[in-house]
Design a protein around this nucleic acid. Structure first.
Lengths: 197, 197
DNA sequence: TGTACATCAGTGAACGCGCGTTCACTGATGTAC
DNA sequence: TGTACATCAGTGAACGCGCGTTCACTGATGTAC
Protein backbone atom coordinates (compact mmCIF):
# COMPACT_ATOMS: atom_id res chain seq x y z
CA UNK A 1 0.00 0.00 0.00
CA UNK A 2 2.51 2.63 -1.11
CA UNK A 3 2.17 6.38 -1.63
CA UNK A 4 1.18 8.05 1.53
CA UNK A 5 -0.19 11.50 2.34
CA UNK A 6 2.17 14.45 2.77
CA UNK A 7 1.33 14.58 6.46
CA UNK A 8 2.16 10.89 6.85
CA UNK A 9 5.41 11.37 4.95
CA UNK A 10 6.45 14.05 7.42
CA UNK A 11 5.46 11.84 10.35
CA UNK A 12 7.49 8.98 8.87
CA UNK A 13 10.56 11.16 8.45
CA UNK A 14 10.23 12.36 12.04
CA UNK A 15 9.84 8.77 13.19
CA UNK A 16 13.07 7.80 11.40
CA UNK A 17 14.91 10.72 12.98
CA UNK A 18 13.70 9.92 16.47
CA UNK A 19 14.35 6.20 16.19
CA UNK A 20 17.84 6.96 14.87
CA UNK A 21 18.51 9.53 17.55
CA UNK A 22 17.78 6.86 20.14
CA UNK A 23 19.37 3.83 18.46
CA UNK A 24 22.57 5.61 17.43
CA UNK A 25 23.11 6.63 21.05
CA UNK A 26 22.50 3.07 22.23
CA UNK A 27 24.49 1.15 19.64
CA UNK A 28 26.64 3.69 17.81
CA UNK A 29 26.61 4.64 14.14
CA UNK A 30 28.07 1.30 13.05
CA UNK A 31 25.99 -0.70 15.52
CA UNK A 32 22.64 -0.14 13.81
CA UNK A 33 21.78 -0.86 10.19
CA UNK A 34 19.57 1.24 7.95
CA UNK A 35 17.12 -1.67 8.00
CA UNK A 36 17.08 -1.60 11.83
CA UNK A 37 16.40 2.13 11.87
CA UNK A 38 13.59 1.87 9.32
CA UNK A 39 12.03 -1.07 11.13
CA UNK A 40 12.11 0.91 14.39
CA UNK A 41 10.23 3.65 12.55
CA UNK A 42 7.69 1.12 11.28
CA UNK A 43 8.93 1.14 7.68
CA UNK A 44 10.98 -1.04 5.34
CA UNK A 45 14.56 -0.26 4.42
CA UNK A 46 14.02 0.55 0.73
CA UNK A 47 12.26 3.83 1.41
CA UNK A 48 15.16 5.24 3.37
CA UNK A 49 16.77 7.07 0.46
CA UNK A 50 13.60 8.95 -0.24
CA UNK A 51 14.17 10.74 3.07
CA UNK A 52 17.95 10.93 3.35
CA UNK A 53 20.78 10.83 0.83
CA UNK A 54 22.93 8.53 2.98
CA UNK A 55 23.30 7.00 6.43
CA UNK A 56 25.98 9.63 7.07
CA UNK A 57 23.53 12.43 6.48
CA UNK A 58 21.04 10.84 8.87
CA UNK A 59 23.75 10.54 11.51
CA UNK A 60 24.19 14.31 11.46
CA UNK A 61 20.43 14.93 11.61
CA UNK A 62 19.95 12.40 14.40
CA UNK A 63 22.83 13.91 16.36
CA UNK A 64 21.27 17.36 16.13
CA UNK A 65 17.89 15.91 17.13
CA UNK A 66 19.39 14.24 20.18
CA UNK A 67 21.03 17.46 21.35
CA UNK A 68 17.78 19.38 20.82
CA UNK A 69 15.96 16.83 22.96
CA UNK A 70 18.65 17.17 25.64
CA UNK A 71 18.41 20.93 25.55
CA UNK A 72 14.63 20.78 25.98
CA UNK A 73 15.03 18.33 28.85
CA UNK A 74 17.39 20.76 30.57
CA UNK A 75 15.04 23.69 30.00
CA UNK A 76 12.21 21.68 31.51
CA UNK A 77 14.25 20.88 34.61
CA UNK A 78 15.02 24.55 35.09
CA UNK A 79 11.36 25.55 35.06
CA UNK A 80 10.04 26.88 38.33
CA UNK A 81 13.44 26.99 39.99
CA UNK A 82 13.95 29.95 42.30
CA UNK A 83 17.39 30.98 41.05
CA UNK A 84 20.29 30.00 38.81
CA UNK A 85 21.91 27.96 41.53
CA UNK A 86 18.85 25.76 41.96
CA UNK A 87 18.37 25.47 38.20
CA UNK A 88 21.97 24.29 37.77
CA UNK A 89 21.47 21.90 40.65
CA UNK A 90 18.43 20.38 38.95
CA UNK A 91 20.26 19.94 35.63
CA UNK A 92 23.32 18.30 37.13
CA UNK A 93 21.32 16.13 39.48
CA UNK A 94 19.15 14.90 36.63
CA UNK A 95 22.18 14.37 34.40
CA UNK A 96 24.22 12.27 36.80
CA UNK A 97 21.48 9.87 37.80
CA UNK A 98 22.22 6.16 37.86
CA UNK A 99 19.04 5.66 35.87
CA UNK A 100 20.58 7.60 32.96
CA UNK A 101 23.54 5.23 33.06
CA UNK A 102 21.29 2.45 31.89
CA UNK A 103 19.03 4.48 29.62
CA UNK A 104 21.62 5.60 27.06
CA UNK A 105 18.98 5.91 24.35
CA UNK A 106 17.26 8.72 26.20
CA UNK A 107 20.41 10.18 27.71
CA UNK A 108 22.85 12.90 26.76
CA UNK A 109 24.24 12.52 23.22
CA UNK A 110 27.36 14.36 24.34
CA UNK A 111 28.32 11.37 26.47
CA UNK A 112 26.79 8.68 24.24
CA UNK A 113 28.37 9.65 20.92
CA UNK A 114 31.83 11.02 21.84
CA UNK A 115 34.00 8.31 20.37
CA UNK A 116 31.66 7.67 17.45
CA UNK A 117 31.93 11.31 16.42
CA UNK A 118 35.65 11.45 17.17
CA UNK A 119 36.22 8.59 14.71
CA UNK A 120 34.44 10.35 11.86
CA UNK A 121 36.56 12.33 9.38
CA UNK A 122 36.79 16.04 10.23
CA UNK A 123 34.66 17.13 7.28
CA UNK A 124 31.68 14.87 8.00
CA UNK A 125 28.47 16.78 8.80
CA UNK A 126 27.94 14.86 12.04
CA UNK A 127 30.97 16.63 13.53
CA UNK A 128 29.47 20.06 12.98
CA UNK A 129 26.20 18.84 14.48
CA UNK A 130 27.95 17.46 17.55
CA UNK A 131 29.90 20.66 18.04
CA UNK A 132 26.82 22.86 17.67
CA UNK A 133 24.91 20.66 20.12
CA UNK A 134 27.77 20.87 22.60
CA UNK A 135 27.81 24.66 22.38
CA UNK A 136 24.03 24.68 22.89
CA UNK A 137 24.28 22.82 26.20
CA UNK A 138 27.42 24.67 27.35
CA UNK A 139 25.52 27.89 26.65
CA UNK A 140 22.86 26.86 29.17
CA UNK A 141 25.50 26.06 31.79
CA UNK A 142 27.24 29.37 31.07
CA UNK A 143 24.02 31.30 31.65
CA UNK A 144 23.66 29.65 35.06
CA UNK A 145 27.15 30.45 36.32
CA UNK A 146 27.17 32.87 39.24
CA UNK A 147 30.28 34.79 38.11
CA UNK A 148 29.87 38.30 36.69
CA UNK A 149 32.90 37.76 34.39
CA UNK A 150 31.81 36.19 31.04
CA UNK A 151 35.21 34.48 30.60
CA UNK A 152 34.95 32.86 34.03
CA UNK A 153 31.35 31.81 33.33
CA UNK A 154 32.43 30.12 30.11
CA UNK A 155 35.32 28.35 31.85
CA UNK A 156 33.11 27.19 34.69
CA UNK A 157 30.59 25.81 32.22
CA UNK A 158 33.24 23.98 30.18
CA UNK A 159 34.77 22.42 33.28
CA UNK A 160 31.33 21.30 34.49
CA UNK A 161 30.57 19.87 31.05
CA UNK A 162 33.83 17.87 30.93
CA UNK A 163 33.18 16.45 34.36
CA UNK A 164 29.54 15.57 33.63
CA UNK A 165 30.36 13.84 30.35
CA UNK A 166 33.43 12.11 31.76
CA UNK A 167 31.66 10.78 34.85
CA UNK A 168 28.64 9.55 32.85
CA UNK A 169 30.75 7.93 30.11
CA UNK A 170 32.93 6.19 32.68
CA UNK A 171 29.98 5.10 34.80
CA UNK A 172 28.45 3.48 31.72
CA UNK A 173 31.67 1.67 30.81
CA UNK A 174 32.11 0.39 34.36
CA UNK A 175 28.40 -0.37 34.97
CA UNK A 176 27.90 -3.17 37.44
CA UNK A 177 31.09 -2.46 39.38
CA UNK A 178 31.24 -0.32 42.54
CA UNK A 179 33.39 2.31 40.85
CA UNK A 180 30.51 3.24 38.54
CA UNK A 181 28.42 4.55 41.42
CA UNK A 182 31.47 6.10 43.06
CA UNK A 183 32.20 8.10 39.93
CA UNK A 184 28.65 9.43 39.75
CA UNK A 185 28.57 10.27 43.45
CA UNK A 186 31.92 12.05 43.43
CA UNK A 187 31.05 14.09 40.34
CA UNK A 188 27.71 15.06 41.85
CA UNK A 189 29.37 15.99 45.12
CA UNK A 190 32.07 18.02 43.43
CA UNK A 191 29.76 19.83 41.00
CA UNK A 192 26.96 20.52 43.45
CA UNK A 193 29.42 21.36 46.20
CA UNK A 194 31.00 23.97 43.97
CA UNK A 195 27.61 25.57 43.51
CA UNK A 196 26.71 25.69 47.18
CA UNK A 197 30.18 26.80 48.24
CA UNK B 1 56.40 -21.08 4.75
CA UNK B 2 54.35 -22.12 7.79
CA UNK B 3 55.36 -23.49 11.19
CA UNK B 4 57.41 -21.01 13.03
CA UNK B 5 59.64 -21.25 16.10
CA UNK B 6 58.15 -20.95 19.59
CA UNK B 7 59.93 -17.63 20.06
CA UNK B 8 58.47 -16.31 16.80
CA UNK B 9 55.01 -17.52 17.81
CA UNK B 10 55.24 -15.50 21.00
CA UNK B 11 56.47 -12.47 19.08
CA UNK B 12 53.56 -12.84 16.66
CA UNK B 13 51.03 -13.02 19.47
CA UNK B 14 52.51 -9.92 21.06
CA UNK B 15 52.42 -8.15 17.68
CA UNK B 16 48.71 -8.97 17.33
CA UNK B 17 48.01 -7.69 20.83
CA UNK B 18 49.87 -4.45 20.30
CA UNK B 19 48.41 -3.79 16.86
CA UNK B 20 44.93 -4.46 18.28
CA UNK B 21 45.54 -2.29 21.31
CA UNK B 22 46.31 0.59 18.97
CA UNK B 23 43.74 -0.05 16.22
CA UNK B 24 40.84 -0.72 18.60
CA UNK B 25 41.49 2.63 20.26
CA UNK B 26 41.59 4.36 16.89
CA UNK B 27 38.63 2.74 15.17
CA UNK B 28 36.69 0.91 17.86
CA UNK B 29 35.98 -2.80 18.22
CA UNK B 30 33.61 -2.84 15.24
CA UNK B 31 35.78 -0.50 13.17
CA UNK B 32 38.61 -2.98 12.58
CA UNK B 33 38.33 -6.47 11.13
CA UNK B 34 40.29 -9.50 12.23
CA UNK B 35 41.99 -9.39 8.82
CA UNK B 36 43.03 -5.75 9.45
CA UNK B 37 44.48 -6.64 12.84
CA UNK B 38 46.42 -9.62 11.51
CA UNK B 39 47.72 -7.61 8.56
CA UNK B 40 48.90 -4.89 10.97
CA UNK B 41 50.79 -7.61 12.83
CA UNK B 42 52.31 -8.84 9.56
CA UNK B 43 50.22 -12.02 9.36
CA UNK B 44 47.22 -13.36 7.45
CA UNK B 45 43.77 -13.65 8.97
CA UNK B 46 43.51 -17.45 9.05
CA UNK B 47 46.05 -17.84 11.83
CA UNK B 48 44.12 -15.66 14.22
CA UNK B 49 42.23 -18.48 15.94
CA UNK B 50 45.46 -20.21 16.81
CA UNK B 51 46.15 -17.30 19.18
CA UNK B 52 42.69 -16.27 20.38
CA UNK B 53 39.36 -18.03 20.62
CA UNK B 54 37.41 -15.05 19.31
CA UNK B 55 37.61 -11.36 18.45
CA UNK B 56 35.82 -10.72 21.75
CA UNK B 57 38.57 -12.38 23.71
CA UNK B 58 41.18 -10.32 21.91
CA UNK B 59 39.25 -7.16 22.71
CA UNK B 60 39.64 -7.89 26.40
CA UNK B 61 43.34 -8.68 26.07
CA UNK B 62 43.97 -5.58 23.93
CA UNK B 63 42.09 -3.43 26.42
CA UNK B 64 44.24 -4.70 29.27
CA UNK B 65 47.36 -4.16 27.18
CA UNK B 66 46.37 -0.57 26.42
CA UNK B 67 45.82 0.19 30.10
CA UNK B 68 49.15 -1.38 31.00
CA UNK B 69 50.88 0.79 28.44
CA UNK B 70 49.11 3.85 29.85
CA UNK B 71 50.12 2.92 33.37
CA UNK B 72 53.75 2.57 32.33
CA UNK B 73 53.58 5.90 30.52
CA UNK B 74 52.32 7.53 33.72
CA UNK B 75 55.03 5.87 35.83
CA UNK B 76 57.64 7.13 33.40
CA UNK B 77 56.34 10.69 33.63
CA UNK B 78 56.52 10.53 37.40
CA UNK B 79 60.17 9.52 37.43
CA UNK B 80 62.56 12.07 38.87
CA UNK B 81 59.78 14.36 40.08
CA UNK B 82 60.54 16.03 43.38
CA UNK B 83 57.20 15.36 45.08
CA UNK B 84 53.66 14.06 44.54
CA UNK B 85 52.40 17.43 43.41
CA UNK B 86 54.94 17.64 40.60
CA UNK B 87 54.36 14.02 39.62
CA UNK B 88 50.62 14.62 39.36
CA UNK B 89 51.30 17.78 37.39
CA UNK B 90 53.43 15.82 34.92
CA UNK B 91 50.76 13.15 34.44
CA UNK B 92 47.89 15.57 33.89
CA UNK B 93 49.93 17.85 31.67
CA UNK B 94 50.97 14.91 29.51
CA UNK B 95 47.44 13.56 29.44
CA UNK B 96 45.68 16.71 28.32
CA UNK B 97 48.03 17.59 25.48
CA UNK B 98 46.54 18.60 22.12
CA UNK B 99 48.91 16.10 20.54
CA UNK B 100 47.12 13.25 22.34
CA UNK B 101 43.85 14.49 20.86
CA UNK B 102 45.08 13.46 17.43
CA UNK B 103 47.07 10.38 18.46
CA UNK B 104 44.21 8.26 19.80
CA UNK B 105 46.06 5.04 19.01
CA UNK B 106 48.76 5.87 21.54
CA UNK B 107 46.48 7.67 23.96
CA UNK B 108 44.54 6.70 27.04
CA UNK B 109 42.21 3.70 26.50
CA UNK B 110 39.97 5.06 29.22
CA UNK B 111 38.97 7.92 26.95
CA UNK B 112 39.27 6.04 23.64
CA UNK B 113 37.13 3.01 24.46
CA UNK B 114 34.41 4.33 26.81
CA UNK B 115 31.39 3.96 24.56
CA UNK B 116 32.72 0.80 22.90
CA UNK B 117 32.97 -0.87 26.29
CA UNK B 118 29.69 0.61 27.49
CA UNK B 119 27.92 -1.03 24.54
CA UNK B 120 29.24 -4.50 25.32
CA UNK B 121 27.02 -6.84 27.39
CA UNK B 122 27.79 -6.75 31.11
CA UNK B 123 29.27 -10.25 31.15
CA UNK B 124 31.79 -9.71 28.34
CA UNK B 125 35.43 -10.04 29.46
CA UNK B 126 36.36 -6.67 27.99
CA UNK B 127 34.28 -4.98 30.67
CA UNK B 128 36.27 -6.51 33.49
CA UNK B 129 39.48 -5.53 31.70
CA UNK B 130 38.32 -1.95 31.31
CA UNK B 131 37.28 -1.74 34.93
CA UNK B 132 40.57 -3.21 36.18
CA UNK B 133 42.53 -0.80 33.98
CA UNK B 134 40.51 2.11 35.27
CA UNK B 135 41.24 1.12 38.86
CA UNK B 136 44.92 0.81 38.00
CA UNK B 137 45.13 4.40 36.78
CA UNK B 138 42.89 5.77 39.52
CA UNK B 139 45.17 4.04 42.01
CA UNK B 140 48.11 6.08 40.72
CA UNK B 141 46.14 9.31 41.04
CA UNK B 142 45.02 8.30 44.54
CA UNK B 143 48.60 7.77 45.64
CA UNK B 144 49.46 11.28 44.50
CA UNK B 145 46.66 13.03 46.35
CA UNK B 146 47.91 15.33 49.14
CA UNK B 147 45.11 14.52 51.58
CA UNK B 148 45.86 12.34 54.62
CA UNK B 149 42.32 10.92 54.52
CA UNK B 150 42.13 7.82 52.23
CA UNK B 151 38.46 8.48 51.38
CA UNK B 152 39.25 12.02 50.32
CA UNK B 153 42.23 10.84 48.29
CA UNK B 154 40.03 8.35 46.45
CA UNK B 155 37.38 10.98 45.77
CA UNK B 156 39.95 13.46 44.52
CA UNK B 157 41.39 10.87 42.18
CA UNK B 158 37.98 9.87 40.81
CA UNK B 159 37.00 13.48 40.19
CA UNK B 160 40.31 14.13 38.42
CA UNK B 161 39.85 11.00 36.34
CA UNK B 162 36.32 12.00 35.24
CA UNK B 163 37.53 15.44 34.24
CA UNK B 164 40.57 14.13 32.36
CA UNK B 165 38.58 11.54 30.42
CA UNK B 166 35.68 13.91 29.76
CA UNK B 167 37.86 16.75 28.52
CA UNK B 168 39.93 14.46 26.26
CA UNK B 169 36.90 12.63 24.85
CA UNK B 170 35.12 15.91 24.14
CA UNK B 171 38.22 17.55 22.65
CA UNK B 172 38.53 14.63 20.25
CA UNK B 173 34.86 14.81 19.22
CA UNK B 174 35.10 18.57 18.63
CA UNK B 175 38.58 18.52 17.07
CA UNK B 176 39.09 21.34 14.62
CA UNK B 177 36.73 23.72 16.43
CA UNK B 178 37.86 26.34 18.99
CA UNK B 179 35.96 24.63 21.80
CA UNK B 180 38.29 21.61 21.59
CA UNK B 181 41.28 23.65 22.74
CA UNK B 182 39.14 25.53 25.24
CA UNK B 183 38.09 22.27 26.87
CA UNK B 184 41.68 21.07 27.20
CA UNK B 185 42.88 24.42 28.54
CA UNK B 186 40.10 24.73 31.10
CA UNK B 187 40.55 21.17 32.35
CA UNK B 188 44.29 21.69 32.65
CA UNK B 189 43.76 24.97 34.47
CA UNK B 190 41.21 23.51 36.84
CA UNK B 191 43.15 20.32 37.61
CA UNK B 192 46.57 21.92 37.91
CA UNK B 193 45.12 24.90 39.77
CA UNK B 194 43.59 22.54 42.32
CA UNK B 195 47.02 21.06 42.92
CA UNK B 196 48.83 24.33 43.37
CA UNK B 197 46.06 25.84 45.49
C1' DT C 1 -18.42 18.09 -7.41
C1' DG C 2 -16.93 13.97 -9.90
C1' DT C 3 -13.75 11.57 -12.87
C1' DA C 4 -9.39 10.30 -15.15
C1' DC C 5 -4.72 10.21 -14.72
C1' DA C 6 0.04 11.49 -13.28
C1' DT C 7 2.84 11.45 -9.27
C1' DC C 8 5.70 9.48 -5.99
C1' DA C 9 6.23 7.28 -0.82
C1' DG C 10 6.95 3.01 0.37
C1' DT C 11 8.05 -2.11 -0.87
C1' DG C 12 11.08 -5.95 -1.27
C1' DA C 13 14.32 -8.35 -4.34
C1' DA C 14 18.83 -7.72 -5.78
C1' DC C 15 23.75 -5.68 -6.18
C1' DG C 16 28.66 -6.08 -4.65
C1' DC C 17 31.19 -6.17 -0.63
C1' DG C 18 33.36 -7.15 3.78
C1' DC C 19 32.65 -9.42 8.00
C1' DG C 20 33.89 -13.43 11.75
C1' DT C 21 34.94 -17.93 11.58
C1' DT C 22 36.29 -22.64 9.64
C1' DC C 23 39.24 -25.81 7.45
C1' DA C 24 42.28 -28.57 4.30
C1' DC C 25 46.75 -27.82 3.39
C1' DT C 26 51.92 -26.70 3.78
C1' DG C 27 56.44 -27.10 5.19
C1' DA C 28 59.78 -25.52 8.80
C1' DT C 29 60.26 -26.73 13.64
C1' DG C 30 60.90 -29.83 17.26
C1' DT C 31 61.64 -34.59 18.78
C1' DA C 32 62.71 -39.50 19.12
C1' DC C 33 66.08 -42.72 18.06
C1' DT D 1 75.67 -35.98 16.34
C1' DG D 2 72.75 -37.20 12.37
C1' DT D 3 68.48 -38.82 10.46
C1' DA D 4 63.52 -39.75 10.00
C1' DC D 5 59.23 -38.30 11.16
C1' DA D 6 55.38 -36.13 13.80
C1' DT D 7 53.77 -31.69 15.07
C1' DC D 8 51.50 -27.52 14.43
C1' DA D 9 51.86 -22.02 13.23
C1' DG D 10 50.59 -19.84 9.51
C1' DT D 11 48.16 -19.70 4.72
C1' DG D 12 44.37 -18.64 1.77
C1' DA D 13 40.03 -20.38 -0.13
C1' DA D 14 35.53 -20.92 1.42
C1' DC D 15 31.22 -20.67 4.58
C1' DG D 16 26.91 -18.07 5.68
C1' DC D 17 25.55 -13.68 6.86
C1' DG D 18 24.44 -8.79 7.15
C1' DC D 19 25.70 -4.45 5.44
C1' DG D 20 24.65 0.22 2.50
C1' DT D 21 22.67 1.23 -1.55
C1' DT D 22 19.87 0.65 -5.99
C1' DC D 23 15.83 -0.14 -8.59
C1' DA D 24 11.56 -1.91 -10.91
C1' DC D 25 7.29 -2.00 -9.17
C1' DT D 26 2.77 -0.75 -6.70
C1' DG D 27 -1.23 1.62 -5.70
C1' DA D 28 -3.11 5.46 -2.77
C1' DT D 29 -2.59 10.41 -3.05
C1' DG D 30 -2.96 14.64 -5.26
C1' DT D 31 -4.28 17.24 -9.39
C1' DA D 32 -6.27 18.80 -13.74
C1' DC D 33 -10.40 19.23 -16.07
Amino acid sequence: MPRVSKEQTDLNRTAIEQASSKLFREKGFNGVSVADLMAAAGLTHGGFYGHFSSKDELAAVACATAFSEASERWQKRMQGKADEQQALHAIIDGYLSSQKVRDVGNGCPGAALTTDVAREPLDKPVRAAYMAGTEELVEILTALSPSPDPAVRRKTALAQWSMMVGAMALARATEGYPIANELLAVAREQLLGDITA
